[in-house]
Design a protein around this nucleic acid. Structure first.
Lengths: 206, 206
DNA sequence: ACCTGAACACCGTTCAAGT
DNA sequence: ACCTGAACACCGTTCAAGT
């Protein structure tokens, strides 16, 4: 092929990387795998990214932009609903992209989209009468709560549910009695924990 | 050296592995590194562990045993204090051993110690009048909350705190106003979130 | 029986050499 | 200017060969 071949656009690299991470898991996202997916070489990738960690950073920002979390409408009338819907949306997005939550552990998102989202959320809390220290702690805690649960998506043992019914009833009476309720699906744990935290926040806002 | 040299005891391997993971991070815990720490070879490790994942599993169980979480006294008079102290202890243990929380993501702990701990916690909740579905959800959610936060220990950017004071005040008024409160230390986020969840649980227990 | 050295098939990263 | 093939220093895992 002659000399006029264009450089591979960044968007195409990132979407290919995201697809690999989602479909085959984070560990399958290697520089060689990504390069071969693009019919190119690993050295070419180092023209776009300083390192594998840098690639990860750019993928995270790409997802934030794709999800347009920052564009969520905030019904300022009720901070409970605003917090609930934002947290759920964020959890859903991170859960959908398996690899991204794990990547988020390595680098806190300080890209432009994440900053706008934080600003809008903090402003909403202040508008609703949250004292400044409470707003800061509430936002930080909720954000970390979402990430902490999102990172655990898809890690449940399938074989675990049957084990609770085969326990020694005498040694584990309480666990045996709750065998029908265990294990709790992660999504339900998330929703329940979120409701508990919002209910707990009520006590701080009069 | 003659033939009588004994096999390396499992405890010595696991404690060496834990020390490497704690001091140098999970990524430094390679089979070669661990083998050379023991003045041995990688092939020898495969006599004790089926794979690296299996090594990880045994390290997790080793920590549970070391921490003796299952031996915590439960003051059955107050479920709030019992939940609070157990969650804090667990968080502290996991936070202290940097690598272990990360390893816990890969394999839910179903070792004997984890099972005893779960039994005692569920029994305590039932004794305090929790309805069975509530006890199951409360325990599952609290356990996952602890792990979700513990896994984020030690991942904070040191350079981040200064950034909040250098923001464009017009574009980010709320964030700028809260610059003194941000970022919230992870330990404080954990304690605050735990208090919120326990406060939220009050509503379910009359 | 237990361990070793060396091999196999991978990684991330770099760089002289091509067009 | 942009890309490539090949190299370097690593991985986890396996296995014939030693004692």
């Amino acid at each position: 092929m002659p000399s006029g071949r264009p450089a591979i656009p960044l968007d195409r690299i990132l979407s290919a990387a995201l697809r690999i991470a989602d479909e085959e898991g984070t560990q399958a996202l290697t520089m060689r795998r990504l390069a071969s997916e693009l019919n190119s070489s690993t050295a070419m990738l180092y023209r776009h990214f300083e390192s594998r960690a840098d690639l990860v950073l750019q993928i995270v920002d790409y997802v934030f932009k794709e999800a347009e979390l920052f564009a969520l409408p905030f019904p300022q009338t009720d901070w409970r609903q605003a917090c609930r819907s934002l947290a759920r949306r964020m959890f859903a997005v991170l859960g959908q992209h398996r690899g991204v939550a794990q990547l988020l552990l390595e680098a806190t998102p300080n890209g432009p989209h994440a900053m706008v989202l934080r600003e809008r959320c903090l402003a909403m809390m202040l508008d609703n009468g949250f004292a400044p220290p409470l707003a800061a702690r509430a936002y930080a805690t909720l954000a970390r709560f979402v990430l902490g649960f999102a990172i655990q998506v898809g890690r449940q043992d399938a074989a675990q549910s049957a084990a609770f019914h085969q326990l020694d009833r005498a040694a584990f009476p309480a666990t045996y009695a709750l065998a029908d309720e265990l294990p709790v699906p992660l999504e339900e744990e998330f929703a329940f924990g979120l409701d508990l935290m919002i209910a707990g926040l009520e006590a701080f806002t009069f």
